[in-house]
Design a protein around this nucleic acid. Structure first.
Length: 769
DNA sequence: AGATGAGCGGTTTTT
DNA sequence: CCGCTCATCT
């Protein structure tokens, strides 16, 4: 038993590395264990060692262990670590997110459900598209019944394990919701599809309704471990309860103060529910913090202490030193905010006080990343943007995924309708209507109709359902699809992928020669690379993983070398030496949608707390007195959370405390930061639009632009009224030029783009004689 | 059937 | 300010 020996060998190491509370958790006996773990208290380590302990010391076979993580990345890291600790047997364990584990169960047990094992997973867009269709079918007013809000109602019902009949009906709208919900379920089923919520709900129903299945799984999982327990919802809680029903060995780790997914149905009171359900559970507190300085922890604590109804916890830094104070910078506007962040980072890197990979910039909403990205692009510094949606949400990527989904599951009508006329092949609304009628009449899916027409041509029984010229293009598409099926069953995934691209001439369709077209085609290439990684595992796994990637999954495991831009939600579970949190204004953080509900306000505060506690060493909080929404600029007030920070832990910088200058940003000099707008970094190498090159699976790294190390000119080359030419902007006229900091700053009016401020040594500006 | 343009509505957070 | 829907035209 190699794993036993390996674990025994490591045991001396790992138990000694733990503090008393951690060791208590790792070595706890059977039964229910509730670990309340403050930020940075080593809970990942505890979970990993607990599994090692179960296998190595308590003799539990990996096969009998289920471990639930919050992201796929966390699962991967845990898997790697465990393989190191106990050997390849670790792979026998079930380890993954709720959603991936549930998908696994559903595919195995599809016989019990009205579902084929090749079901597809509908993403958020598909779900709304489906609701949109229902709204149309039911002749509802889509202004009054917005598909997105109907879908939200359905989703929240599902997360609470409520079927349509369980929903309370108090008004007409409730009735509508029930009807839409029923139809939604029906359509999902006839599409052989599940949505994110079904992934959780269906296994619960499966276990509830089938004692033999429940028996099988609950006997199998002798031990269940769950991370981020405070963010479980009703369905997840119930699933755990059922799975742990036989052995009742369940080890959960959580922190009520870090619960940030209420809007998704998560309920930190599941922690209380757990204690009530298992009165004999052992409760272990992890309060020692190995991550942050005491300053960071004190600040974080004074923020979270404002939340009512919580157990106050101490947060003690094990790091000894008290640490740098928190800097609060007030910029003039949101551009200045971004410029401050980028400039500060640039100085840190230049002075070698930090490595890019140790820095994170966080924000409340994704929209805030744009100005930051622009500032980074202009500075020429590389950065990494966390957000899978950015990549998978792109039209071209969705198109190809829809085509592949159709190959996996011809009943997927959402995908069929998406791509049946992509690129345009003469199939319009009228033909589609006839197609749906034909499918309905014969009680088969639209996909089957198309396939049959592709196979049998005019001999197909469905041919006559179409008025004359409508049938031919459908049959053409059907024939193409048939080819893809054949390819799917005989050839590896990359071959199928290429065939799909080629058969519909997709490159020609998407790449029109513009920068945007090239970018689109590059995205397809990225997707293809990913398909290559899945050639062993195949189409179903590929599509499933695409559907279930989380934002964090796109982060490289080692961290990387560029600063990371991410939402506060995406920052959960991560840590960085230096953390910038931007947009600390009322309305953004806390978000305006949370102002009237105390529960939501409390969650905003927890979100801020999560952000603060990501920092090991230094926190930079940033806000601005003005920001643009929908194009127009509006004044904004400092976030109420800033008031919660003890004054002695904070250094105010920027505009704070000063009166505003009528001349605006560039007048502000306070010795720390002197750039009020970012035009100082304007550079020829980079275009101002934010077309970043994407890298694998949706995380973007923008490489520093190639710069020829031209020595700064000793003297002025340009003068007003000179005609100049620029490689990107073309021809222009110099408005003004002056020497600044040993370099020449040139203002040019270009015919193409208008005014630009350029640095002579960087811009490849030529004088037209 | 498909391409083009006016008008409008909409920003939380994501598996 | 941007992206999407709908109406109108070719």
């Amino acid at each position: 038993m190699t794993w036993y020996n390996t674990a025994l060998g490591d045991k001396m190491d790992y138990l000694e590395k733990l503090n008393g509370q951690q060791r208590q958790a790792v070595t706890a006996g059977l039964g229910q264990i509730l670990v309340l773990a403050g930020p940075g208290s080593g809970k990942t380590r505890v979970l990993t060692y607990r599994v090692a302990q179960l296998i190595g010391q308590m003799g539990v076979a990996p096969y009998h262990i289920l471990s639930v993580t919050f992201t796929n990345k966390a699962a991967r890291e845990m898997q790697n670590r465990l393989t190191q600790l106990i050997g390849p047997e670790a792979e026998q364990m079930w380890l993954g997110t709720f959603h991936s584990i549930c998908a696994k169960i559903l595919r195995r047990e599809s016989a019990y459900l009205q579902l084929d094992s090749n079901f597809v997973i509908m993403d958020a867009d598909d779900q709304v598209t489906l609701v949109k269709r229902i709204v149309k079918d039911l002749n509802l007013n889509d202004k009054q019944y917005k598909p997105s809000s109907l879908h939200a109602a359905i989703s929240s019902a599902k997360n609470n394990l409520q079927a349509p009949k369980d929903l309370p009906i108090g008004n007409y709208r409730d009735e509508i919701i029930v009807r839409v919900y029923e139809r939604y379920l029906h359509m999902m089923q006839s599409n052989n599809a599940v949505d994110f919520d079904d992934l959780l709900v269906l296994p619960v129903r499966l276990l509830q309704n089938n004692p033999e299945v429940r028996e099988k799984y609950s006997r199998r999982f002798e031990h269940i471990l769950v991370d981020e327990f405070q963010d479980t919802n009703m369905a997840q809680y119930e699933l755990l309860r059922l799975l742990a029903g036989y052995h009742k060995n369940i080890f959960v780790v959580g922190d009520e103060d870090q619960s940030i997914y209420r809007w998704r149905g998560a309920d930190y009171r599941n922690v209380l529910r757990f204690e009530e359900e298992y009165p004999n559970c052992q409760k272990i507190l992890l309060e020692e913090n190995y991550r942050s300085t005491q300053v960071v922890l004190d600040a974080a604590r004074s923020v979270i202490d404002h939340n009512p109804h919580r157990t106050p916890k101490r947060l003690a830094s094990a790091r000894g030193k008290s640490g740098e104070k928190i800097s609060v910078y007030t910029a003039v506007d949101d551009r200045g905010e971004a410029a401050y962040v980028v400039d500060t980072i640039q100085k840190l890197l230049k002075s070698k006080q930090a490595n890019g990979g140790d820095i994170a910039v966080m924000y409340r909403t994704n929209a805030q990343s744009r100005l930051l990205e622009e500032a980074f692009l202009q500075s020429g510094m590389p950065y990494r943007l966390v957000g899978a949606q950015r990549f998978y949400g792109r039209r071209e990527v969705k198109d190809i995924i829809a085509m592949l989904r159709l190959v996996q599951n011809p009943a997927d009508e959402i995908s069929l309708l998406r791509v049946i006329n992509v690129p345009p092949r003469g199939i319009g609304d009228k033909t589609l209507l006839s197609l749906q009628m034909a499918a309905l009449q014969h009680n088969i899916s639209s996909g089957q109709v198309v396939l049959d027409m592709g196979k049998n041509g005019p001999d197909s029984p469905y041919w006559k359902s179409f008025a004359g010229r409508g049938a031919a293009p459908l049959a053409d598409f059907g024939a193409i699809l048939l080819g893809w099926y054949e390819s799917a069953s005989t050839a590896p995934l990359p071959t199928l992928f290429d065939r799909v691209i080629n058969d519909c001439n997709y490159q020609n369709y998407i790449d029109d020669g513009t920068d945007e077209g090239t970018d689109r085609w590059e995205n397809i290439q990225e997707l293809r690379k990913l398909a290559y990684d899945y050639q062993e595992r195949g189409l179903i796994d590929f599509l499933e993983n695409l559907a279930l990637v989380s934002d964090q999954d796109t982060l490289p495991e080692g961290g990387g070398s560029a600063p990371t831009l991410l939402t506060l939600h995406a920052a959960k579970g991560l840590e960085f030496e230096r953390v910038f949190i931007t947009g600390l204004d009322e309305g953004l953080m806390p978000h305006s949608r949370s102002l009237d509900d105390p529960e939501e306000m409390a969650e905003e505060r927890r979100l801020f707390y999560v952000g603060l506690t990501r920092a090991k060493d230094v926190v930079y909080l940033v806000r601005s007195t003005q920001r643009s929404t929908y194009g127009s600029s509006e004044a904004s007030e400092p976030s109420r959370f800033l008031r919660d920070l003890p004054a002695e832990l904070v250094i105010q910088q920027g505009l704070a405390g000063s009166r505003r200058s009528p001349t605006g940003a560039s007048d502000w000099r306070n010795g720390v930061y002197r750039g009020g707008n970012s035009s100082r970094w304007e550079d020829s190498g980079i275009s101002t639009h934010s077309s970043s090159s994407s890298s694998l699976s949706g995380s973007y790294t923008v490489p520093p632009p190639p710069r020829k190390a031209a020595p700064p000119p000793a003297q002025q080359r340009f003068k007003a009224t000179m005609r100049v030419i620029h490689p990107n902007y073309g021809e222009g006229v110099v408005l003004e030029s002056r020497m600044e900091d040993g370099d020449e700053t040139v203002d040019v009016h270009f015919k193409s783009v208008g005014f630009k401020r350029l640095i002579a040594s960087l811009a490849h500006l030529e004088i037209i004689p």
